[in-house]
């Protein structure tokens, strides 16, 4: 009879403890685990892949530097996504990029990814990104955090640094603005794009 080996996913906290104990491989593990999400949040806020990569890398470096001060009682993702959010905001403020340029580059990226099967999905992605580019970074963050990993309102509130009630109001406003933007972009086509 073979013994049953139960492989559990190592928690963020235990990876951090490894790092603090001197295990350098832990940095790689932590980065691999959270890179896509950090990159996506950054991408939604800054608008281009190149800048998003720079922001995500910068956020990781900041997080690694601050790891000794991290309170292990709190959730790593909440703490880290706050760093990503702030880094992306700072970047956005520093580099005010022409929205039209972003739209053009993203349309090109989406168009190149189009296949006959994935046409609709690529179209949806393209229009959502175009609409998001017209929203404020705060609105984009609220929407991204809520939909991408389905963070709770309490977690979103902690990441953005506001109360849960305010987060709910802000999320509602952000979704409303996005719906208006989608309507402006697509008119009556909005419904047909989805269904």
């Amino acid at each position: 009879m073979h013994p049953i080996v139960v492989k559990t996913l190592e928690s963020d906290i235990s990876i951090i403890e490894r790092i603090l104990a001197g295990d350098k491989a832990g940095y790689r593990d932590l980065a691999n685990r959270h890179k896509d999400y950090a990159f996506t949040v950054a991408y939604k806020i800054v608008g281009t892949r190149e800048d998003a990569e720079e922001v995500a890398q910068d956020a990781f470096i900041q997080a690694f530097q601050a790891l000794p001060q991290f309170n292990k009682e709190s959730k790593f993702t909440t703490w880290f996504y706050r760093i990503v959010f702030n880094t992306a905001l700072m970047f956005k403020r520093k580099n005010r990029i022409q929205t039209d340029d972003i739209e053009a580059s993203q349309s090109a990226q989406a168009a190149s990814a189009d296949t006959s099967d994935g046409m609709k999905s690529a179209e949806q992605k393209r229009y959502i990104q175009m609409a998001l580019n017209h929203l404020s970074p705060d609105d984009v963050t609220m929407i991204t955090l809520f939909y991408l990993k389905e963070q709770s309102l309490e977690e979103i509130a902690q990441i953005v640094g506001i109360s849960a009630d305010t987060a709910k109001v802000k999320l509602c406003r952000a979704r409303k603005r996005l719906a208006e933007e989608m309507k402006r972009l697509l008119g009556n086509e909005l419904h047909s794009l989805v269904y």
């Binding site: 980065a31 896509d36 990159f39 979704r175």
Partner: peptide
């Protein structure tokens, strides 16, 4: 209908993928 359509689009919001060498570059930088 307008809100529901936007909500449905957002629910399929894809996770973006980083470049293949993202972690290597990050560790070098670190």
């Amino acid at each position: 209908k307008e809100y529901a359509a936007t909500h449905a689009l957002l629910e399929d919001l894809p996770m973006e993928k980083t470049a293949v060498n993202f972690t290597d570059k990050l560790i070098d930088q670190w």
